[in-house]
Design a protein around this nucleic acid. Structure first.
Lengths: 343, 343
DNA sequence: TATCATCGTGGAAACGGTTCCATTTGGAAT
DNA sequence: ATTCCAAATGGAACCGTTTCCACGATGATA
């Protein structure tokens, strides 16, 4: 049986209160007493019980993170950002993965209780109004990262703008037959996700350039490279195939590249490919993409959360939005379309 | 203030014991009483406090996972395996990242207390004898994954064999000038890591084939694609460059491929490249590699851990080793060496 | 010497559950 | 109607901390 605070108190010949004060560096402990207590602690190899401490103090020194599909490279990068902030503050990370609607709903139902953590970060899942209401009045502060609700503080990018930037880049290169492939816009999680907004940006760019939208150039399927690969084959089998494909994520762009390779369609000479996110492999693959600050989003989310944890009132009076910048990273998968003579 | 069990008891007109029994589906509660309690719970929107429950029951319904560099694709895959097991059992995941020796030592010091979780999984970090001793007598069961100590149960692969398989494959193709690049064998974490064992397999394969080991064909640096890329440039600048490079991980193999591309060295015609791990991108890159069951290692580790959690005595009487199989995945980055005439 | 802060300290109460023991209750058996 | 047993229930004790209140000691001030 591990030693308890009472064992330490007895051995040091002091009260439990004094031991507690020593543990928490409370100033009003005589130096000689402190030493005695510390000796007892060392002798008994005593470590305070985390759970008891949490119950009694109401503080957990944990942060909860809800991350759908945390295996996705983008989630991982964000998590890493969060982690660097937690390390500094000596906080631990409790990870809640979400891969089904059921799990999602369950978490939104139970997590606001927040008795396991002092603050909650929600990645990518935009809550509906009811859920947002619950989160807003949760026992602990909540910050969204890459998710949106008007009533909640958040760290986001402008996905519409991002979709616009990507499409505009292709248009500027001379493309007019531009396809967009994405994961399913009406996701099982029931909210307007990033892909849907990027789609809006895509539509706007086409519209502004006077290019007519072609429904057959717009495909969606489950997220993943293999699915994107299949969609690409469908696109390239069209009577009039696109000369450029904008994929809603780098992972999907990888599938596009594979399909092109399988068909011996040269990239970028015969087909331009745009991704989104700028995950690590994008660089290896020389993929042109829209860079979003994934790591930074984790850092900023965590830091904002800590501001609220340390100053709970702020949360009541403000809803803060941190908007992170996007950047076009031109690598080697985009070029003017084949027909386009570069005088 | 959230409702407590006493509020519920009062409202339902029963004792707290009865409410507790309802919460835990204890059979001996009269149906009518149960209904009354459930109504009170619903009316007060009561949820039991997790921390209090943990303190009084001694069970946490958490699993701790220590993962060095959890952003690495291999760790992420393992985590995903763990996660699928946890979901079934309604357990949560507390993640401890390790990126420095200091953090490593600190965790090995404090974690064995195990008051935050019912079991601990340690990825990739092989403890020394002292640490193993501490872990063995920890308050909760511990299982190593991809790490080794004779006194602790573990899920592992045979890295020596893996290094041998990879090298043998290249030898069988006709290569004799085979380089090995890896992350630093004497890691700051002070233990014999996978790369060192793969190196042993590499040496053995060379030896068996009567190929002399050349020190200039063996380079090491920090883990990462850019570093591997730089090492590859050094190798390819040698007077007599290797015709095949075996990289200790797929991530490093990616760096090799990039360097080859930069120099217009055709893969596999002029240079064969072998990876190790078979992470997701390996398939996209058509990388020949040694597949190790990353996802499965997470699943098996978690399941073994639960066996011990449910049956603590087993742990005292056995040290179990689960050895997972390796498989050569031949894709398109390996071929006979250029000089080699295929009659 | 009397008065009064101040500092240091001990220990009870509280956190919100679970568990166990003692007691009540309900219904079958006599 | 009485007896008896199992099932159902109430509630105190406990888990291991923190926190707060009260008290004694110390030393400064008048």
């Amino acid at each position: 049986m591990p030693a308890t605070i009472r064992d330490v108190a007895k051995r040091a010949g002091v009260g439990v209160g004094t031991v507690s004060r020593v543990l928490n560096n409370h100033p009003s402990v005589r130096e000689s007493t402190r030493r005695r207590v510390e000796e007892a602690i060392a002798a008994l190899n005593y470590r305070p019980n985390t759970i008891a401490r949490q119950l009694s103090s109401g503080k957990t020194a944990n942060i909860g993170v809800v991350a759908p599909f945390f295996i996705r490279p983008s989630s991982v990068e964000r998590l890493r950002g969060v982690e660097t902030v937690l390390v500094e503050r000596q906080y631990d990370l409790i990870l809640y993965n979400v891969e089904t609607k059921k799990k999602r709903d369950e978490l939104f139902q139970t997590l606001p209780r927040g008795d396991m953590f002092d603050g909650l970060l929600v990645f990518t899942l935009s809550p509906n109004d009811d859920e947002a209401e619950r989160l807003r009045h949760a026992a602990v502060p909540v910050v969204l990262v890459d998710a949106f609700h008007p009533a909640l503080s958040r760290v986001v990018i402008d996905d519409i703008e991002g979709g616009y930037m990507a499409t505009k880049h292709l248009i500027d290169l001379g493309h007019t037959r531009i396809a967009y492939i994405s994961d399913i816009l009406e996701s099982p999680f029931e909210f307007v996700g990033a892909s849907a907004q990027r789609y809006q940006g895509y539509r706007r760019a086409l519209h502004e350039a006077g290019i007519e939208f072609r429904p057959e150039y717009y495909l969606q399927d489950q997220h993943g490279a293999p699915q994107a690969q299949a969609m690409t084959h469908r696109l390239l089998s069209l009577a009039e195939p696109p000369t450029a494909i904008f994929a809603a994520s780098d992972t999907q762009a990888i599938g596009v590249l594979r399909a092109a390779k399988e068909r011996n369609v040269a990239v970028p000479e015969q087909l331009s490919v745009m991704g989104f996110d700028d995950i690590e492999v994008a660089e290896y693959l020389n993929l042109t993409t829209i860079h979003q600050p994934l790591f930074t989003s984790g850092v900023e989310g965590a830091e904002l959360l800590f501001r609220y944890i340390e100053n709970p009132d702020e949360l009541r009076h403000e809803v803060k939005e941190v908007l992170l910048p996007l950047r076009l990273i031109q690598r080697q998968t985009t070029a003017p379309p084949p027909s386009h003579t570069t005088r």
